[in-house]
Design a binder for these strands. Structure first.
Lengths: 196, 196
DNA sequence: TTCAAATACTAATAAGTGTTAGTTTTGCAA
DNA sequence: TTGCAAAACTAACACTTATTAGTATTTGAA
C-alpha cells in the first residue's frame, strides 16, 4: 500500500496528471489503461478515484490547461502595440517555448483532443477556432499594412501553426539544438523563407 | 446476411481497407472496433476474418502503402537533374497532392503509426528516417550551391514536412481553396517567406 | 494517544475487445 | 441442377476495460 508521493507545492492529483500526460503522450489516450497509470505511482487503479472523477477528466484537464495558456498569451499579444511582424514572431517563439517546457501536455492536447467527450470537444474546438481567428487577424493586419505578401491568411496560419507543432518530432533530439537557435531558425524560415 | 459490395477492379479486402482507413481517421485506430468496421459493410465482425488476418494488419497495410508512395516519389526526385529549389518545390507539391487525393490513408499513417506492432514499427520508422535523410540531403545540396540560406537543414525539413502535414486541418474546407492555389501559397511561403 | 479524514486496499461488475470454432448460406461453374 | 468454394452467420472464448462498493489502513491534528 504505497502512497502517492507529492513534491512541495503540488497535490496528488497534480502527480496523477503529470504521469497521465506522460503516458498519454507515449502510448495514446485510448491505449493507456488506468491500471497502467496507477502502476507508475505504485498504487492500484481504483485508488485513483480518491483523486479523480474519471479517466476522461484527466484528458480534459490536460487539453484545457494547454488551451488556456495559448489563449492567455494571445490576449496579451493582441493587447500590445507591436506591429504584425513582431506579433507573429512572438507567437512563433511562444509555441516553441511551450513545446520545450510543457511537451507532454502540448503533445497530448494536439493529438488526443478528438477523444474528448462531446461537450468538451465542442468547447475545445471553439477555443481553438477563436485562437486561429485571432492569429489570422494579425496576418490580415500585416497584409493591409503591406508588411506581408498577399497570401491566403488562413493557409498562412495553418502553415505556421503546423510547422511549430512539428517540433514534437525533435523531442528525442532536444539536446542537439538550443532553444534560442531553434527559435531563430524557425522564425526566419517562416517569415523570410529559405531561398537566398 | 449482406455481402460486401465490390466495385470493378477491387477485392473485398480493398473495400475493408478503405472503410477502415476512413474510420481510423475519424475515430482513431484504438477507438475503432472491428464490430464497428463490419457494420459499415452490413456484415458481422467475425466475417471480416474471411478477408483479413487481424486488425493490426489493416493498420500495417495503410501505413506501409503510404510510406511506399512517398519513398517511390523521393526516388524519382533524387534521380532527376533538377536543382535543389525545384526538387523541394516538387516534393512540397507532392505532399499536398497526396493529402488531397489519399487523405484518409495519409492521415492514418501520420497519426496512428505508433500503434503498429513492434516489428512493423521499427520498419516504418526506418523508412521514414530514410525519407527524411534524403530530404535533408537535398537541403544540404541547396545550401552548398548557395541557393539556400544556411539554416539548420534538419529543422528546415521538419518545418516543411510539418507544414504540409498541417493540411489535414483543411479537409473540412477543401472546397474553399483549389489545389493549385494551395500549392502556390505553400511553396511560396516555405521557400520565400511571408514578409515583403 | 485518540479519532477522524484521507487514502489505500480487495472484490466485483458490466460492458466491450479481438479472435476462433463450427455451421449455414450464397453464388458461380460445370 | 448440382456441387463446391467463398463468405456469411451464431455462439463463445479469454481478456481487458473503466468504474463502484465496501473495507482496511495510514496520517496528522487535537
Amino acid at each position: 500500500m504505497a502512497k502517492i508521493k507529492t513534491l512541495t507545492n503540488g497535490t496528488k492529483k497534480d502527480v496523477i496528471l503529470k504521469n497521465a500526460s506522460a503516458l498519454f503522450r507515449k502510448k495514446g489516450f485510448k491505449a493507456t489503461s488506468l491500471r497502467e497509470l496507477a502502476e507508475t505511482m505504485d498504487i492500484e487503479a481504483p485508488s485513483l478515484y480518491n483523486h479523480i472523477g474519471s479517466k476522461s477528466e484527466l484528458l480534459e484537464e490536460i487539453c484545457f490547461s494547454v488551451a488556456k495558456d495559448f489563449t492567455e498569451y494571445m490576449n496579451t499579444i493582441m493587447a500590445s502595440k507591436d506591429d504584425a511582424v513582431e506579433k507573429i514572431s512572438k507567437l512563433i517563439r511562444f509555441h516553441i517555448q511551450k513545446m520545450y517546457t510543457d511537451f507532454d501536455n502540448v503533445f497530448v492536447s494536439n493529438h488526443e483532443w478528438k477523444q474528448l467527450q462531446k461537450k468538451q470537444l465542442t468547447e475545445f474546438l471553439s477555443q481553438r477556432k477563436a485562437y486561429e481567428s485571432a492569429f489570422t487577424e494579425i496576418i490580415n493586419e500585416g497584409i493591409k499594412k503591406r508588411l506581408f505578401k498577399t497570401l491566403h491568411p488562413q493557409i498562412t496560419v495553418l502553415t505556421i501553426l503546423s510547422a511549430v507543432r512539428g517540433l514534437e518530432f525533435l523531442h528525442d533530439h532536444k539536446n542537439e539544438y538550443s532553444i534560442e537557435s531553434l527559435e531563430e531558425n524557425m522564425v526566419q524560415h517562416l517569415l523570410t523563407g529559405i531561398i537566398k
